[in-house]
């Protein structure tokens, strides 16, 4: 613990790097998965292929992917881009299935209504399907984000790993405090990510959080500030990453 406090500036620098390395792939993953989902959601063949490829990508161990990517796209072995690309691939793979399922979950009568009222297909996708898919999509994004936070540290083995570097040097120097510091900050980071996504999703979906009191007496809707939420999903995601 003391080590963490004594080396705050160094840890802060690594945290910023860690943030960058996990945040960007999550964002890219959401955007790409959404694009794929909206474009191919109702084409069964394309969908089957995308799902299969996504599953295949997700089974590649992360370390292997970090090492292989430079030889495929010609980057330097120590280029952070390798980690970014690898994690973006994982996020996309993880999210694309969620996107398909989320879009499928939109009630048929709502789609029917949209068609009958005069929505074009593209317009319906964006203004009806997408907002209604936000909640399940956010759940998937939370898993992807937390997975990324843990996976970034694997990058430390190839020299790009944000806080993961604390594990490597802590292990090499046989200095548990440093490792502990890394674990603490990564856990905190995962927790913050998870919360930020959950709260954002909540703000984007006010219709899913209607207090029964508000419904009964017609008062204006307001988000319930202290509503209990299911604990963050990193608890289940974290052990999974160890195998990568």
């Amino acid at each position: 613990m003391n080590w963490l406090l004594d080396n705050l500036p160094q840890v802060l620098g690594l945290t910023v790097e860690h943030l960058y390395l996990s945040l960007v792939p999550t964002f890219v993953g959401v955007v790409v998965a959404l694009g794929l989902g909206l474009a191919f959601g109702n084409r069964p063949r394309a969908r089957a292929i995308i799902t299969a490829v996504a599953s295949a990508i997700f089974t590649i161990p992360s370390l292997a992917l970090f090492v292989v990517i430079p030889s495929i796209i010609g980057t330097q072995i120590l280029d952070p881009l390798n980690v970014l690309i690898a994690l973006a691939l994982y996020s996309t793979s993880l999210l694309v299935r969620t996107v398909f399922d989320a879009l499928d979950a939109v009630a048929p009568e709502v789609l029917n209504a949209a068609e009958a009222l005069g929505y074009s297909h593209a317009r319906r996708r964006i203004f009806v399907d997408l907002p209604l898919a936000v909640a399940p999509l956010a759940a998937g994004t939370r898993v992807a984000a937390v997975t990324n936070v843990s996976l970034v540290s694997v990058g430390a083995v190839i020299g790009v790993g944000g806080l993961g570097q604390l594990f490597v040097s802590g292990y090499q120097r046989n200095y548990p405090d440093q490792i502990l510091a890394g674990i603490i900050v990564i856990l905190l980071l995962a927790l913050v990510f998870d919360r930020v996504i959950a709260v954002t999703a909540r703000l984007l979906t006010p219709w899913l959080h209607l207090g029964t009191a508000a419904a009964a007496n017609g008062t204006k809707l307001r988000p319930r500030p202290h509503a209990p939420e299911v604990p963050a999903q990193h608890g289940t995601a974290a052990p999974g990453q160890e195998t990568k």
Binding site: A107, E109, V110, A113, A114, L117, G118, S120, V128
Partner: peptide, 20 residues
């Protein structure tokens, strides 16, 4: 789409958009 925008439609279970 043009045709439908000019024709009102009421659905069996209202078919309202839950997010609006």
């Amino acid at each position: 789409v043009t045709l439908r925008l000019g024709i009102g439609y009421v659905l069996q279970n209202a078919g309202l958009f839950p997010h609006r």
